[in-house]
């Protein structure tokens, strides 16, 4: 076995293991951490495919930003695992049967010759100055400009939806209004009370 293949199988095994743990482990924090491991192994596989930019973006964006935020949310939420698992056993036989059948059918097809290594020709070595980032950028902003814009529209929809669903003004909370605080005049702040001095005796 070549060294490259060894690395591939290493990352592949870790990825499958981590992905399985994400959905089977009981503790949501651990699940999130396993998802981080899955992302890192996937990034490793992408590096081997010479997709450096995507690999780095996956680590930076997903592992660095998204998953950290996700972990915060999971830790903040008080998820009641006992209630989540209610009815799990009840649906297990039918759900398990469907899952086993689906996986078996997929396995039969995916392990057929059509997916064998012989069917996938080697893409060939890239020239020395090849920049993955540049090629991606060029495609994204020319040929794929229209889908790129639609993706932006989807993100905008997500922002509008998230704000519309969560923002509400509560009347009973106490808050400061900085604009009013700054706009104040000196005489509003200090009230000079004129009075005669009091005598002590």
């Amino acid at each position: 076995m070549e060294f490259k293949q060894l690395i591939f199988y290493f990352f592949g095994t870790v990825l499958v293991f981590a992905a399985t743990m994400v959905i089977t482990v009981r503790n949501p924090v651990k699940a999130a951490l396993f998802l981080v491991l899955a992302f890192v192994s996937a990034a490793g596989l992408w590096l081997m495919l010479q997709a450096e930019f995507l690999a780095i973006a996956l680590v930076l964006v997903y592992v660095g930003a998204v998953m950290v935020l996700f972990l915060f949310v999971v830790m903040m939420l008080d998820i009641n695992l006992v209630r989540l698992r209610e009815g799990f056993g009840e649906y297990l036989p039918i759900g398990g049967l469907v899952a086993v059948l689906l996986v078996a059918e997929m396995a039969i097809i995916l392990s057929s010759d059509r997916f064998g290594p012989a069917q996938m020709p080697d893409p060939g070595a890239l020239p020395a100055g090849h920049s993955n980032t540049r090629e991606l950028g060029r495609q994204l902003y020319t040929v794929y400009a229209y889908p790129f814009e639609i993706a932006a529209a989807i993100l905008l929809t997500a922002i509008v939806a998230a704000i519309a669903l969560t923002l509400r003004r509560r009347k009973d909370t106490k808050y400061q209004n900085p604009a009013q605080q700054i706009n104040i005049e000196p005489r509003e702040r200090v009230r000079v009370v004129k009075m005669r001095s009091e005598r002590k005796n």
Binding site: P147, A158, R168
Partner: peptide, 30 residues
Amino acid sequence: IMASASHFLTLYLGLELLSLSLYAMIAFQR
């Protein structure tokens, strides 16, 4: 977008744009 899609990518993105709006509209009465 879906009505005038001639590419799998635009078809899928149009579908997601529609679905995402629908999810949010259903939950609008929070």
